[in-house]
């Protein structure tokens, strides 16, 4: 699993950090900061939940 984020689309809702703290954080400007591009098994479910709940679909998850 590989995650990409779109900082132009991001509106800084913090939903990703709420759902997957180990995978996402927020840059000091409030927008998304990706911590882990390829989350391991333990973080995968949370990463998928975060992607599904991003209010502006700024998170993409691809199979590698």
């Amino acid at each position: 699993m590989r995650i990409t984020t779109d900082r132009e689309t991001c509106v800084g809702s913090g939903a990703c950090v709420f759902h997957a703290q180990g995978v996402f954080d927020q840059h000091p400007d409030g927008r998304v900061l990706l911590l882990v591009e390829e989350p391991d098994e333990a973080l995968r479910a949370a990463a998928l939940t975060a992607a599904a709940n991003c209010p502006v679909n700024a998170i993409s998850v691809n199979d590698v």
């Binding site: 509106v11 800084g12 913090g14 950090v17 703290q21 954080d25 927020q26 840059h27 000091p28 400007d29 409030g30 927008r31």
Partner: peptide, 10 residues
């Protein structure tokens, strides 16, 4: 974008 820096997790 003026306000979201004020509500980061940190």
């Amino acid at each position: 974008r003026m306000v979201i820096p004020e509500f980061t997790a940190k």
